[in-house]
């Protein structure tokens, strides 16, 4: 089986700083894959590289078999690969409804886009209550839901969510994750999610990649990494040999 999204030896540099050094990962159809790692490890850069936000120095990024262009985020969004950027980027002065409608503008016909609006609103009852309020007035959790909703409006098959829990209360984070799971079930979405911490991820994800210093240190299924020890080692970088020595099986043992 070929992966839906496949990154091979991706390298990204910001000036002299190397942000990703030969990163490879795969996401299969229908999976929930999580990328975890400390601040500055390269999680957001990975998503930006996939979504076309940064120039790629080397490597390949293929989505459903086709190589993605660099620096063309609006084209990539049309291919069915949607990014929910970190830090709740909503269009502050526009209403909730307008924010969502914008996501649907790339759909070819208006009726389909109206139906999508109806369906997406169904997942977020809280947003429906605030339909005509400016998005900037929403609470953090509502804004996070709105940016997920807007991504859904673009009719994606794979959604990347960059740190959905950032700055949110634990209860709200749970709600956000429940909605993401529901979306996988009902819409058949594939999800790639960035997180800084692993505890919640182990419950939701199918597979996990640990990233540090711009490269994958460890990967395995959630079951294999259940006890969290291998993740801890890879995350903080002690016992780097653990990661190199085929970590998944080592962690399961």
């Amino acid at each position: 089986m070929t992966a839906m999204l496949a990154l091979a030896d991706v390298e990204v540099r910001y000036g002299r700083l190397v942000a990703l050094r030969g990163l490879s990962l795969e996401v299969g159809q229908g999976e929930i894959v999580c990328l975890i790692g400390p601040n500055g490890a390269g999680k957001s850069t990975t998503m930006a590289a996939i979504a076309g936000g940064v120039a790629r120095v080397a490597g390949s990024i293929r989505f459903e078999g086709t190589e993605l262009p660099a620096r063309k985020p609006e084209r990539i969004a049309r291919l069915g690969l949607s990014l929910v950027p970190e830090g709740r980027h909503v269009f502050g002065t526009l209403t909730v409804e307008e924010n969502l409608r914008i996501g649907g503008y790339m759909r070819p016909n208006a009726r389909e886009s109206a139906a999508a609006l109806e369906r997406v609103a169904g997942y977020f009852p809280k947003l429906k209550e605030r339909w005509r309020a400016p998005a900037g007035r929403l609470s953090g959790g509502e804004q996070q839901m709105l940016s997920i909703g807007r991504a859904l409006m673009t009719n994606p098959r794979l959604v990347m969510v960059d740190e959905p829990s950032l700055g949110l209360a634990p209860l709200i984070v749970d709600t956000v994750y429940e909605i993401l799971l529901e979306l996988r079930e009902r819409e058949g979405l594939t999800l790639l999610i960035n997180e800084q911490s692993s505890h919640r991820i182990l419950r939701f994800a199918d597979r996990i990649y640990v990233i540090r210093n711009g490269a994958i240190q460890l990967h395995g299924t959630a079951d294999e990494l259940r006890d969290g020890e291998a993740i801890k080692a890879a995350y903080f970088g002690f016992g780097a040999s653990v990661a190199q020595a085929g970590a998944p099986s080592g962690a399961a043992a």
């Binding site: 985020p73 969004a77 049309r78 950027p85 307008e98 924010n99 914008i102 996501g103 673009t154």
Partner: peptide, 22 residues
């Protein structure tokens, strides 16, 4: 439609491009 997309890009370029706005 164009006006709304333009106002969205004024608010947030990253999110606008992620929403397929040219």
């Amino acid at each position: 439609r164009y006006g709304l997309m333009l106002r969205a890009s004024r608010e947030d370029e990253v999110a606008a491009r992620a929403s397929a706005i040219n």
